[in-house]
Design a protein around this nucleic acid. Structure first.
Lengths: 347, 347
DNA sequence: AATAGTTTTGCAAATGTTTTCATAAATTCG
DNA sequence: CGAATTTATGAAAACATTTGCAAAACTATT
């Protein structure tokens, strides 16, 4: 039982208790194979008796790795980010790292400040979410010599290695799916794109894909909707109650699509007979909803895992690290919420 | 523009660049009011030029606070925990703290190991999830002199201050609601309770409340279902296809309830006419689903916020800290998924 | 212009480790 | 059994900062 009130449980206290020098105690932790097994045992017991806990801060000032990784995300409130972070955290935890987590709420100024905090803590590596960041952020990273990975999105020409899904491809996949079903009267619902390069990229590519097939989306069918089921339900309901009504609705993510599904039900429409609804993301639950949602899967767990692996090796063995981007391809998932356009065009 | 390749951007480099002593640079950061504004300016520019970033590790070994808080949760995969963590993180970030986050996946052994890691990093405080923890964890905390709060659940006699909702009350509220509607033929669906005191407490109190109203739940109506929409949908469907069918189903959380709602739909039952379904949690989306879910709200954001406030003050000003538990009361939310039992008792 | 008082700065010790180098102890070999 | 070699341990310097104390630089007062 550790001595609760022992003044200082530092390496000296342990050394005294084990009747060895502090250096030996240090070696006990860092190079145990150098010790005689008898001394090892003695120190072992001393550590237990004193309740000593190593002080990583003291190690860190020797240039030794801190064993921490800074993870910077927009918010945990989107389950998909929570999922990525969970996978990442599990992966690097297995290699002995602990994560520093902070969210910037899509405020790029805050991102810079948080990154500085991370660096003050001497993190061994950094993960940012998405490809777009303030130039100051990149410059700060340039001046440090720790690895950084841009997680979640993928692009060949990213400023730092990126590991994630190609948004353009995701948008293209879903747009093509809708087109291939024969839809021409198509509406879109996307979240506000301010400070959110992902949403922006998706919208652009969806519109471009439709356009190149000769389909244009009229302004009043181009919805900008907050990331919430209630908002999207409401907006969808309003859309569906117009005289001219689309035969398909492409949503920027599965949350919006879920709300749209509810909105359709509330408007008395049958999905997919009256209207098709598709999303992007394949969030948890998207396969279970009624009707199950056609969408594009962004492999969150895999992205988290791959990023964790890549960053951990980049930290542990910088030489071997290829430090390259990795594409975790999105995948079209066709379920029950999409089908060919029905007869019923008008009310 | 910071000197990218300056060998060492330590306090000495800054001191030289500003032609002052290192001590003065230290003061610039820690007690700026002691400096002449001219020197302050000089150092300011030197910091900029050298690209110096403070080293918190070096401060920490002086007994100065590390500015980190360890947060230990079961998993981020449950959106409700992500929500609590987000609220907590925002709250303490505003006070300058950064969080170390780790999840144990309901493995109490791992919890001990993670806590040790946190302590090695000299966190200024710790947050654990739930009331039940390994005795070794508590003893370890006892031996340290940093504040710890048990977040999420509340109990008057918790081993450490607890801030959260009273599970018993939540379970009681929902059970009483179902009883008050007139149901007597009631089924229950709860997640596996191993290593999960929350789920266990909820189930016990629900059953006890029913029992004290003279209602017993037959074994085959006592479902243990994995935390997933697909599992709960399946299990609910199986339950609803039995010859004898309950008029109400109480679910241990809203995810299970959501699945059960889908299961009911798939079985051709109308909620709440044929069967009532209720949950616990009031997760995001529970109000938007069709039919909207009757449940008990566990105020996640508030819990995260209150815990953040309490822990931050306990760290910054231990004297003033009352360091007491706080109950964030759960609240019955009656929506459309519950109603009086219908005529149709049998198939 | 000298004195007393105040503000600002520098020196050096301290913090809890790791690590290099040197020495002591143990082992191997002839 | 003693020399040569190997293995285990200790002493002290180093790491990046903070801080108590004292000295230096200013101000105000006469």
């Amino acid at each position: 039982m550790p001595d609760n009130k022992s003044k200082k449980a530092d390496i000296f206290a342990v050394a005294k208790a084990a009747r060895v020098s502090p250096s030996t105690v240090s070696r006990y932790f860092n190079h145990p194979e150098l010790l005689k097994s008898a001394t090892r045992k003695r120190i072992d017991s001393a550590v237990r008796r004193t309740g000593y806990i190593r002080n990583r801060a003291a190690q860190t000032i020797h240039g030794i790795r801190s064993g921490t990784i800074g993870v910077l995300i927009p918010t945990l409130d989107h389950a998909i980010f929570a999922e990525v972070v969970q996978a990442f955290s599990d992966t690097v935890a297995a290699q002995g790292f602990t994560i520093l987590l902070a969210s910037h709420g899509y405020d790029l100024q805050r991102e810079y400040a948080i990154l500085r905090k991370f660096l003050e803590h001497r993190v061994d590596g950094v993960v940012l979410t998405g490809l777009d960041h303030d130039e100051a952020v990149f410059q700060l990273l340039d001046s440090q010599e720790i690895p950084c990975i841009l997680m979640w999105n993928y692009a060949t020409a990213s400023r730092y290695p990126s590991i994630g899904a190609d948004n353009e491809q995701a948008g293209k996949l879903i747009a093509e799916h809708v087109l291939s079903l024969g839809h021409r009267r198509i509406a879109c619902m996307f979240p506000p794109t301010h400070g959110n390069d992902r949403a922006l990229a998706r919208r652009e590519i969806v519109l471009a894909t439709l356009r190149s097939a000769g389909v244009t989306v009229p302004d009043e069918w181009m919805l900008t909707t907050l990331y919430s089921i209630s908002d999207s339900k409401q907006d969808a309901q309003r859309l569906f109650s117009q005289f001219e009504r689309p035969t398909a609705l492409i949503c920027g993510n599965d949350i919006l699509a879920t709300g749209a599904l509810f909105g359709a039900a509330a408007s008395g429409l049958v999905v997919p007979d009256d209207v098709s609804v598709v999303g992007i993301g394949d969030f948890k639950g998207s396969s279970e909803i009624e009707p199950s949602l056609s969408t594009v899967r962004l492999p969150a767990r895999r992205i988290g895992y791959e990023t964790g692996q890549a960053l951990a090796t980049a930290i542990i063995d910088p030489a071997s690290a290829p430090n390259v981007s990795l594409h975790c391809a999105p995948e079209l998932i066709v379920r029950k919420s999409s089908g060919p356009p029905g007869q019923a065009g008008h009310l």
